[in-house]
Amino acid sequence: MEQLLQQIINGISLGSIYALIALGYTMVYGIIKLINFAHSDVYMLGAYIGYFCMTKLNLGFLPSLVIAMILCTIVGVTIEKVAYKPLRNSTRIAVLITAIGVSLFIEYVTMAIAGANVRSYPPMTGLMAESFNIGSINITMQQLITLGITILLMVLLQFIVKKTRIGKAMRAVSLDQDAAMLMGINVNSTISFTFALGSALAGAAGIMVGVYYNSINPLMGMLPGLKAFVAAVFGGIGIIPGAMIGGYFIGIIEVLVSGYGNSMYRDGVVFAILILVLIIKPTGLLGKNIREKV
């Protein structure tokens, strides 16, 4: 029982990372129907920016987090402006291929600049290095802080999307672009804002993963990116709470499979679950098929 709880706590930490990345996939998909393959590389850049801030600038975790989020926002918005916006009226497959191109570009430019080798985050000090026990369950401050920041960011995101003017514009554009334009909504800036939000969250995920697992490399985005995408589809692509639930679900499943079964099957199980969900409920866990009445 205690081992199970311990695993679930570890799963929640991992799930936080997946959820943060999944949100970016799901929001961008929701608004322009694009699977933004470069998203996982923005996450990777977040990890590198955090690494740079902590090792070269000797900044603490929180300032590094903020810088990573800001710089990733700029990167994400730039990717959209330079690579996707000119293709707004092209076929979806053209944009998809471009996204793959952007992803490879970022990965290999990072390799060229930072080197292909694995780098290790500095060991945490102070509060971040603490941990405590409840019974025999060990909880690190890192885990708590990761979870706390993730929840804070999600609450903030929900607030922006539900309550603010730009959030309402995001929802309107994702539901019906033409109708949104007829309301006077600037579709281009709304799309940019969506990339900005998603990229900021990916940046946060990147630095948190660096802190949590220590090692980072230019291709580190691939598998987590894929799993976060699975999380988004699992929850219902385009649906924000779906991505959150999906992220935590995948994170917990993954840790449980490694803990009780065989960690070799970890990724297989995740994808098997995706296939199962898509067979049973093609729109994902929270996906609904609202048919408009005529």
Binding site: A172, L175, D176, D178, A179, L182, I290, E292
Partner: peptide, 9 residues
């Protein structure tokens, strides 16, 4: 044409 209300809002 077709109203185009935002259905989930």
């Amino acid at each position: 044409e077709g109203r185009r209300v935002f259905p989930t809002m």
